[in-house]
Simulated assay, not measured.
Amino acid sequence: MNSPALFMQASGDGHPLVLLHGWGMNSSIFTPLVAQLPQYQCLQVDLPGFGDSAPLDGGFDAWVDQLAQHLPEQAMVLGWSLGGLLATRLAQRYPTKVAALITVASSPYFLATAEWPGIPAKVLQQFTQQLQQDLPKTIERFLALQAMGSDTARDDIRRIRELVLAKPQPDATALADGLAMLRDIDLREDAATLQLPWLRLWGKLDGLVPHRVITQMPTADNITDAIFAKASHAPFISHPHEVVTEIQRWSTATGLI
């Protein structure tokens, strides 16, 4: 059976909340979080070539355009890691689609430089090489990185693996395209122009997106930052109650619910 162009699972009622996952993952990663957000209409999306969505040629903006075609108007969009990069671009290019933005453990530029905290280029290069040699092992290694550093890392890694492996293995080309996006896409200028309500959630122990990047990010009245002191790269797995509480508090304060 052919995969749909873009798989999306809806649950709950209320204001639409779109959830975009990170590299190597799929929308199942958000299932525990969605269960705690019944006041929203949660839309769990598999990115192109991940989970139950068909691969898509054309790169970053082609992915953004396809997402925009399937999303409702004036949605809240939550993007985790690579999903946050896509969500940021969606908000910049399709302002009628995105009423508010939530980024989780995400940066407008993922590559580390002398001035910018991020993922070292050699790490991304290693993943690129390993993808060509052993795709399943590479995904397993990356799954483990999501929780490294958190107090509950072992349980978190087990939970992440259970959720992600419930769906088909990602397409190899989509994985390579996603790594290229993490290496090449720079939305720092785009992010500085956003005027919509923007909640940024960070794990203080995150080894992939260091929380100190906050000091390099734009600040404005429309932006709210929350740092989870004992969380790593997947705070919604390790600290779901705290993440839900922050989303609900912010949504209420900004008049979104």
Rank of each mutant, 00 (worst) to 15 (best):
L131G: 00
L196G: 10
S107C: 12
D186Q: 06
D177S: 13
Q129F: 05
P55W: 07
L179N: 02
G12E: 03
A231D: 06
N222K: 07
L56G: 01
I157C: 09
A229F: 06
A172P: 13
R154C: 04
A191H: 06
P120V: 01
A176H: 07
L208N: 02
E73R: 07
W63R: 02
P235I: 02
P38D: 08
K122Q: 12
V77N: 02
V213C: 09
P168W: 12
I185K: 05
A226V: 14
P108N: 05
T138Y: 02
T96L: 12
P117N: 02
A226R: 15
K230N: 14
L78N: 01
G24W: 03
P218V: 05
D190Q: 13
R188E: 13
Q69I: 03
W198Q: 08
P55I: 02
G14M: 05
L199Y: 06
F60W: 03
I247F: 08
D184G: 05
P4M: 05
D57N: 05
A220G: 15
S106A: 15
L19V: 02
P95I: 04
I139N: 07
L196N: 09
D221Q: 14
Q146N: 14
V45G: 06
L71Y: 00
A180E: 10
D134V: 00
S150G: 15
L6R: 07
L135K: 08
E189K: 11
V45C: 12
W23P: 05
L78T: 04
A91Y: 05
L111W: 06
F127K: 00
H15Q: 13
D57A: 09
D177Q: 15
G207M: 13
Y94A: 00
L17E: 09
M148H: 12
P197S: 03
E189N: 07
A121R: 01
G49C: 06
D57P: 02
L33C: 06
Q216C: 14
L85D: 03
T252D: 12
S251N: 11
P48C: 03
G178R: 03
R161C: 10
A105N: 13
G255P: 09
W23L: 11
H241N: 14
P240T: 08
A54D: 10
L145N: 01
T193I: 08
Q132A: 13
L205A: 07
L163V: 11
L19M: 13
T138C: 12
P170Y: 12
R161P: 09
V45N: 06
P72G: 00
A180T: 10
A121F: 01
T219I: 07
S238Q: 06
W116T: 00
N26D: 15
D46V: 02
P136N: 12
D13F: 01
S251L: 03
G118I: 00
V98P: 10
P108Q: 04
C42W: 00
Q132L: 09
A100F: 02
M148E: 15
Y40H: 13
D156T: 11
P108R: 01
D171N: 15
R183L: 14
T128W: 00
Q69K: 08
Q9P: 03
K230P: 00
D206L: 14
T113N: 10
A99P: 04
R249P: 13
L135Y: 02
A231Y: 04
K137D: 12
A166K: 14
L143F: 12
I139L: 15
R158P: 01
F7W: 10
D52A: 11
Y109I: 00
A172L: 13
